[in-house]
Simulated assay, not measured.
Amino acid sequence: MGWGDIRRELGRARAAWDSVAVHAAAAVGAAQLPAVGMIWYVDVTTGDDYGGGTIAIGLACLFVLAPLYLPFLGLLHACVQTLPAALLARLTVRRVRGPEWMWHLAWAAALGVLWAGATAVLWGWPFAATAAVLAALGVLPVLGVAYFRRGSRSRARAWGCSGTWIVSAGVSFVLFMVVFGGAVVATETGLVEEYEPPLLSDAQLTGVWRGQDGAVLRLHAGGRAELTELPMVSETDDWLADPVYTVCEGTGTWEPLRRDGDGDGDGTGGGSVGVEEDVDRDGVGLRVDGGCGQPTLWTIGGTERDPELFVLFGDPDAGDLRILTRD
Rank of each mutant, 00 (worst) to 15 (best):
G222D: 04
G214V: 01
L200H: 10
A215E: 08
P197S: 13
Q212G: 10
L217S: 06
G222W: 02
L217G: 03
F176L: 15
G190Y: 05
F173W: 12
F180K: 02
G211K: 01
R218C: 04
G222R: 01
A215K: 06
G190W: 08
G214R: 04
E193A: 06
W209N: 07
F180R: 03
G181Q: 02
L200C: 11
L217E: 08
A225K: 10
A215L: 11
V208Q: 12
Q212N: 13
E196P: 04
R210T: 14
V216K: 03
L205I: 13
E226N: 14
G181P: 00
A203W: 02
V192Y: 04
L227I: 15
L175Q: 04
R210F: 06
L175C: 12
W209A: 05
R210Y: 03
W209G: 05
L199N: 09
V216E: 04
R224T: 14
T228A: 13
L227W: 03
T187F: 00
G190Q: 10
L199V: 09
F173Q: 05
L200I: 11
G223A: 02
E196G: 10
R224W: 05
M177D: 06
T187C: 02
H220R: 15
L227T: 14
E188P: 01
W209C: 06
G190L: 01
D213K: 15
A225R: 11
F176S: 15
T189D: 11
T189N: 13
T187M: 10
D202S: 14
A203N: 06
R210D: 05
Q212T: 14
Q204Y: 09
P197C: 07
V174C: 15
R224Y: 07
E196H: 07
V185K: 07
E188Q: 14
A225D: 01
V185Y: 07
E226F: 12
L191P: 01
P198L: 10
V184L: 11
Q212C: 01
G181L: 01
T189Y: 06
A221W: 04
L217N: 06
V178P: 00
G211Q: 00
E193R: 06
A183D: 07
V216Q: 02
R218A: 15
G182M: 07
T189W: 03
E193T: 03
R210S: 15
S201L: 00
T228H: 08
V178R: 06
M177S: 13
R218G: 07
A186Y: 03
A203F: 08
P197H: 11
V178L: 15
S201C: 09
G211N: 00
L199R: 12
D213H: 14
R210K: 14
G211Y: 02
V179A: 14
A186W: 01
A215H: 12
V179P: 02
D202E: 12
V178Q: 04
L217P: 05
L219G: 00
W209F: 03
M177Y: 08
T187S: 13
G182W: 02
F180I: 05
Y195I: 07
G223T: 09
V185D: 13
E194C: 00
D213T: 15
L217T: 03
V179G: 00
L191C: 10
E226K: 11
H220Y: 08
A203M: 09
S201W: 10
F173T: 11
G211C: 09
E193W: 02
G223H: 01
